[in-house]
Design a protein around this nucleic acid. Structure first.
Lengths: 243, 243
DNA sequence: CGTTCCCTTGAGATCCGTCAATATTAGTGG
DNA sequence: CCACTAATATTGACGGATCTCAAGGGAACG
């Protein structure tokens, strides 16, 4: 279940922390006790309300962070990708959201306490962390804008375009699109729609020649046209340090 | 337009930064060049896409942060309240959102560059900042959940309850509710609705005996019942350091 | 006292959800 | 490779929530 912590420097190279840290910082990060863990599909890694406080860096696989509602529904906030980080309690208070594996998931994991305390020892790490938090925030803001002010069709397109770009930045995209193990129910919970309507929107996007989503993979057919149609501007996905 | 920076320690006492900082930290904060500025109603303080990078702490008045869409619409993300802070560029990249005064607005303002650089000099400030960012994130997450998974009626109630609690924590609420200069158009842009429908939802809440929103003030008539109806749990609004 | 926001209400259209049924795919064990 | 099952995808018909369009009323402010 757990692996040698010396595996951590590897993912560092492709993670959100790869920029802006000198060797001292990296050595320090490596000392924080990150371990590589594996979770099976549908494992709940951190549940809303938990007091436990951990930092995760995605190594491989798909997962989601979500809020759980009283009636059993959920709102998916994001699908964190390889190299991105997740803070179960967001550094304060009780966990406001749940973190769930969707496929088999490999994550680097460390207690948040040591991580936060470490910010004092590595000032540049604090800056990098702020940058990473800012990017996460920008993604959340786009999802919020999606839900509030865009039609179901554009909203669906926008999310798939975003995931495509994020996977490209993580070097996990194919030439034509990307592998996407999400079900239409998952998409619905992220888009504030029903799975049935997501199905209709995917069909509409296919009939308009924009993309195909079949058998777990998204295939862009007219990406430029789709980006224009969905008013998609990838600027908010810029990684810290990226020009 | 600008006031002596020694006014800053005053708001510190009631701001998000009031907890967890020792005298050294506070003295350091005071040296970062915060000035008190006044903006007239509807002033655009920071526009989406700006490169300028400032930190604000709300002193008095109402404002909103929003994303601007191509068709001229906007999605309001939040209404920051007294003592809360706003980072125009969120510490990285270009401003992903606009910051606009809604009433006359007084803010403490400082260049973000010095602020971020200062985190190295004041490790506990970094921790406090993370806590503040975490709270902002929790608020965003609730707004996202509101838009995605709650009906227009509950969504409206939830936002007004949230604003009530936040104003109480800023000591800016009345006994029965709070002064609220927002128009129904403003609420609509925050709730992902049209102003017309907001109007109908407010009527419905009034007719159900939950609250009145008239002449710029929100009056809770059955707060407990409303909190239950709207599945409102104020836990996510806990201030850093608050039990 | 007139203008300008802002609020309020109604009627009809549209988008999206609900319910119900079937088809397809993926997984499992024989 | 096949039979069976569960999960997922697909489609249609209908209803309800929300939007659009249109009109008027009220409050604030000069």
């Amino acid at each position: 279940m757990t692996f040698a912590s010396h595996a951590f420097p590897r993912v560092l190279e492709t993670s959100i922390f790869r920029i802006g840290l000198d060797d001292n910082d990296k050595a320090y990060l490596g000392s924080l006790g990150f371990i590589l863990r594996r979770y099976p599909p549908h494992a709940v890694i951190s549940r809303q309300g938990d007091g436990e406080d951990r930092i995760f860096v995605i190594h491989s696989g798909w997962s989601c962070i979500s809020t759980d509602l009283a009636d059993g529904e959920r709102q998916i906030l994001d699908f964190p990708q390889k190299g991105e980080f997740v803070a179960s309690r967001a550094f304060e208070g009780e966990a406001p959201e749940s973190f769930t594996a969707q496929t088999e998931l490999m994550v680097f994991e460390a207690p948040a306490k040591a991580f936060v305390a470490g910010l004092a020892h590595s000032p540049s790490l604090a800056g990098v962390l702020l940058g990473a938090v800012a990017r996460q925030r920008a993604i959340l803001v786009q999802h919020l804008t999606n839900l509030g002010r865009r039609s179901a069709l554009i909203r669906t397109a926008h999310l798939l375009l975003e995931l495509g770009v994020r996977l490209e930045k993580a070097n996990a995209a194919k030439k034509y699109g990307f592998e996407c193990p999400l079900t239409q129910y998952d998409l619905a919970d992220a888009l504030g729609l029903t799975a049935i309507h997501v199905n209709r929107m995917l069909r509409e996007l296919r009939e308009r020649g924009y993309l195909e989503f079949r058998h777990g993979s998204v295939h862009f057919l007219n990406r430029e046209g789709l980006e224009h149609f969905a008013e998609f501007d990838a600027g908010y996905l810029r990684l810290p340090g990226e020009t």
